[in-house]
Design a binder for these strands. Sequence first.
DNA 1: GTTGAGCGTT
Length: 255
Amino acid sequence: MSHFGRSGPPDISDTYSLLILNITFRTTADDLFPLFDKYGKVVDIFIPKDRRTGDSRGFAFVRYKYADEAQKAVDRLDGRVVDGREITVQFAKYGPNAERIHKGRIVESAPRSGHRSRSRSPRRRHRDDHYRDRDYRRSRSRSHDRYERDRYRGKDRDSRRRSRSRSASPDYSKGRGRGRYDDDRRSVSRSISASPARRSPSPRKSTSPRKSPPRGESPDRRSRDGRSPSRRSVSTRGRLADSRSPSPQNSDVDE
DNA sequence: GTTGAGCGTT
């Protein structure tokens, strides 16, 4: 009966957004509604879900009608155990349109922030960019390392800084010593290395790693392609390009 | 079927 987020944001002009973190992946808006509604008038509740699976991401947004109620809910629900997990309730820092929020309320601040606006460094989160098939969620799952590192941050901090300086010193010198020379040499090395590496991962199956092409893409051509990637796109075109310079290309590709 | 820092939708 609760259609939160299904019709989009109903009214966020005078509403306070609260961010609920640390909630279980099975907690839904309906479960939070009675909990938050008890402390105030909840205008809308929205829980970001994954586009692939549609599961909740682990946090929800609760919009209150009044700030006092929202504050109360934060103070009362913050740290409350929901579904066996302690949830974190706090005022949202950013809005749906990536707008700044002050105390939970969206601050409608025009681009004309002043004369020092360009000096600002807006945080550009390419969250959707990784929506393709990247597990951004799992990637950050490794929180243990972070915590451990955080502990040593006090003492290691100096060490880290020095390490960086030291590392940069020799590196810089080396790079400058034979910058392009090394680069050039490496380039060739990489090329050769890449060649045998292709058939390496397929010791058992000598057939093409990918599904067999329905039309037979001429494996022969592929071999040559890797050897002399000088011009291959022109060859595909065929006539038009051929007409222009059939001599050098043909000769090169043929042998 | 799993996971755990973060800031949002038809």
